[in-house]
Amino acid sequence: MSEFTSEECTDPAGHRLHICQLRKEGRDEEVAALMADPGHTCLNCNAVAKHAKNLCNPSPFSRA
Rank of each mutant, 00 (worst) to 15 (best):
M1K: 14
M1H: 14
S2V: 09
E3H: 02
E3S: 06
F4S: 07
F4R: 07
T5D: 04
T5Q: 01
S6I: 08
S6A: 15
S6G: 09
S6P: 11
E8A: 00
D11Q: 11
P12G: 02
P12V: 03
P12H: 02
A13D: 09
G14F: 00
G14E: 01
G14P: 01
R16D: 10
R16T: 04
H18S: 05
H18G: 00
I19V: 09
I19M: 00
C20A: 03
C20E: 01
C20G: 00
R23W: 06
E25Q: 14
E25K: 13
G26P: 08
R27Y: 09
D28K: 11
E29S: 02
E29T: 01
E29F: 03
E30N: 04
E30T: 09
V31D: 04
V31C: 04
V31R: 06
V31Q: 04
V31Y: 05
A32V: 03
M35S: 15
A36G: 08
A36W: 06
G39E: 14
G39A: 15
G39Y: 08
H40G: 08
H40E: 07
H40S: 06
T41L: 13
C42W: 04
C42F: 03
C42D: 04
L43W: 03
L43K: 12
C45K: 00
C45T: 02
C45Q: 05
C45V: 01
N46G: 07
A47W: 10
A47R: 10
V48A: 12
V48H: 11
A49H: 05
H51C: 13
A52I: 08
K53N: 06
K53L: 13
K53I: 11
L55G: 08
L55I: 07
C56R: 03
C56A: 03
N57T: 00
N57Y: 05
N57Q: 03
N57S: 02
P58T: 05
P58I: 04
P58R: 02
S59T: 14
F61Q: 10
S62A: 10
S62F: 06
R63Y: 10
A64F: 09
A64C: 11
A64H: 10
